Amino acid sequence: MCEANGTATGKILLENSRMRVTEWRFAKRGDNTGWHKHAFDYLVIPMFDGVLEIDQPDGTRVEAKLQNGVPYDRKAGVEHDVINGNDFECAFIEVELLEDAPSV
């Protein structure tokens, strides 16, 4: 993810020329990533059952219900602020695809 200035903490677990894997941790309700725009396609793997609140550029907020271990993916260009909507600490793994896979 590009630089964001929220209260959630990101820890890079793996990075190479093809991917970056980051653990994002939200200690309490209301912790957030800060506004950011994804420069790469990415995959998110929740490590909890619960909700994240997503602020969008048009001023709306949507609730995303997540299930532990059930991934979802998004294309580059997504802009948002991700907020912990739970009364407990939560985390997810984000895998950014920094380049296309080589052709076979």
Rank of each mutant, 00 (worst) to 15 (best):
P71F: 10
L66T: 04
R74Q: 13
D81L: 09
G85W: 02
E96K: 04
K75D: 11
L98F: 05
F88A: 11
N68Q: 10
A91M: 10
E63G: 05
D81S: 09
A76I: 03
V78K: 04
D81H: 12
D81N: 15
I83K: 00
A91I: 03
L97D: 00
L97W: 07
A76C: 06
E89W: 08
E89S: 14
Q67W: 08
I93S: 04
N68M: 09
V82G: 00
Q67E: 15
R74C: 12
F92S: 06
V82F: 00
P71A: 14
K75V: 12
K65T: 09
L97N: 07
G85E: 04
G85F: 03
I83G: 00
V70W: 09
H80M: 13
D81W: 02
A91T: 11
E96M: 04
H80I: 10
R74K: 14
L97T: 06
A76N: 07
V78R: 09
D81E: 10
G85Y: 03
N86G: 08
G69E: 08
G85V: 03
E89I: 08
E96L: 07
V70D: 12
V82R: 01
C90D: 05
L98D: 04
D87N: 10
E94V: 09
A64Q: 12
N86C: 14
P71N: 13
A64M: 10
L66A: 11
N84D: 01
H80P: 07
Q67G: 07
A64F: 13
K75A: 14
A91E: 09
E94R: 06
G85M: 01
G77V: 02
G77E: 01
N68F: 14
A91G: 12
I93V: 11
C90F: 04
A64K: 12
I93W: 04
P71R: 11
G77Y: 01
V95R: 03
R74S: 14
Y72R: 15
P71H: 13
D73K: 15
G69H: 07
C90R: 00
H80Y: 08
E89Y: 09
D81V: 14
G77P: 02
E79R: 07
E63K: 13
F88R: 12
K75P: 04
N86L: 06
N68E: 12
F88V: 08
I83C: 00
Q67N: 13
F92C: 03
D87I: 05
G85C: 05
L97C: 06
V78D: 11
D81G: 05
G85P: 03
G85I: 03
N86M: 15
N68A: 11
D87K: 09
V95F: 02
G77M: 02
Q67A: 14
N68W: 10
D81T: 14
V70Q: 15
A76V: 06
D87M: 03
A76S: 08
A64R: 14
L98W: 06
P71D: 12
F88S: 11
A91V: 06
V95P: 00
Q67H: 14
E79S: 12
I83A: 00
V70F: 10
E94W: 02
P71V: 09
V78A: 11
